[in-house]
Computed example of a mutant assay.
Amino acid sequence: MQALTVTPRRRDSLRVETLPDPSPGPDDLLVEGLAVGVCGTDREIASGSYGWAPPGRERLVVGHESLGRVVWAPSGSGFAEGDLVAGIVRRPDPVPCGACARDQYDMCRNGRYTERGIKERDGYAATLWTVETGYAVRVDPSLERVGALLEPTTIVAKAWEQIERIGGRAWFEPRSVLVTGAGPIGLLAALIGRQRGLDVHVLDRVERGPKPELVRLLGGTFHTGDAEEVLRRVRPEVVIEATGSPGVAFAAMLGLRAYGVLCLTGVSPSGRTLRVDAGAINRELVLENSVVVGSVNANRDHFTAAARALAAADLPWLDRMVTRRVPLGGFAEAFESDGGGVKTVLELRS
């Protein structure tokens, strides 16, 4: 098989290698890799700033946003040859902590989890891979061109689940959501917001290109400019922050409507400082019963919810989200910036 590998923590070490074909265990699927999405985490690994190889190994097969076709499935598994599937990324720690013991490995408490393509487990950027049946999720056959969007959709499926759980403390019928950031996570958060019947607003810095049009095609409103000013105009009950900008995050804390929920999905770089009115932020959150929550990763329930959301979405809209498709042999291009594009997908079949 062909696989895209890297030596973690070594810059510019990405290469395509020929590796032995994997042998499925008795409870594994054997899968032909079709595509993987490329995200910021992948680019951090490629830059040498992140990632861990499997124990006893120097190199890691990258890729966690997977899509493949089943080549072989064990009898009674519920899967069959030809099924489209995606592989769940995280595995519970071996101890396990209380959350991992209850299949909530996205909420691991001790950090001993592993992740395909990221932390101590080979990923899915290979022309052939295996996955345990319990960590495989069926993808609707109509999604063959866009199924690599499933994993990023799980991130916002979890975010929406967290928002609903928090809102469920009392009566909660939000009418509007502001998504900050029109990258893949932000646009998929907006998609699920529209599927929930909300008035969707998206804030981003760009004024041209595919992002404003994708928001308009959803029936949402696209905004540019100052975050505080947009929040004053929209006054959303829900904000999903997907930029990782500290300034935007703190503006959102002050700009929520009463009983609002701010869900942070963007990861901010450390070392940046801001001057904020901490008293005003504290006063606003306390007196309005508002909540700020961080959300990352996903478990099986979120993968299943994401698969439903994509199957219910407009296929041409999803296809427009994928603004660059790169063959495996041209992988270097996939790890470069796409300018004003949205999503890059690395295609594994020749």
Rank of each mutant, 00 (worst) to 15 (best):
Arg69Leu: 04
Ser337Gln: 06
Tyr105Gln: 14
Leu310Gly: 09
Leu348Gln: 06
Glu65Ser: 04
Pro20Ile: 10
Met253Val: 10
Gly225Ala: 05
Thr221Phe: 02
Phe331Gln: 05
Arg43Cys: 08
Asp103Glu: 15
Gly40Glu: 07
Gly63Ser: 09
Glu237Cys: 05
Arg272Ile: 12
Thr154Ile: 11
Val31Pro: 14
Leu218Met: 02
Thr133Asn: 03
Val137Gln: 13
Arg216Gln: 12
Gly168Tyr: 01
Gly147Leu: 09
Cys100Ile: 05
Ala251Lys: 06
Asp103Trp: 08
Thr114Glu: 13
Gly167Cys: 12
Asp301Leu: 14
Asp338Arg: 11
Arg109Gly: 04
Leu217Asn: 01
Ala101Thr: 11
Gly33His: 06
Gly330His: 13
Tyr135Ser: 15
Ser337Ala: 14
Ser66Arg: 00
Pro24Ser: 08
Ser47Met: 04
Ile240Asp: 01
Arg308Ile: 04
Asn282Thr: 14
Ile155Ser: 13
Cys263Gly: 09
Glu288Lys: 15
Val62Ala: 06
Pro22Asp: 11
Ala73Asp: 09
Thr7Phe: 02
Asp319Ala: 15
Gly186Ser: 03
Arg57Gly: 00
Glu288Asp: 10
Thr7Tyr: 01
Val6Phe: 07
Arg109Tyr: 02
Ala53Arg: 08
Gly186Val: 01
Glu336Leu: 13
Gly329Lys: 08
Asp83Glu: 02
Asp140Thr: 00
Val38His: 08
Ile185Cys: 04
Val230Ile: 14
Glu32His: 09
Val146Gly: 04
Pro316Thr: 08
Ala73Glu: 11
Thr41Trp: 04
Ala73Thr: 12
Val177Gln: 00
Arg272Tyr: 02
Leu287Tyr: 13
Glu213Ala: 14
Thr114Tyr: 03
Ala242Met: 06
Ala136Ile: 10
Ala3Cys: 13
Glu32Ala: 15
Pro8Tyr: 07
Ala136Ser: 12
Pro152Trp: 06
Gly247Leu: 04
Arg91Asn: 11
Ala101Met: 03
Arg15Ile: 03
Val326Asp: 04
Val62Pro: 02
Cys108Asp: 11
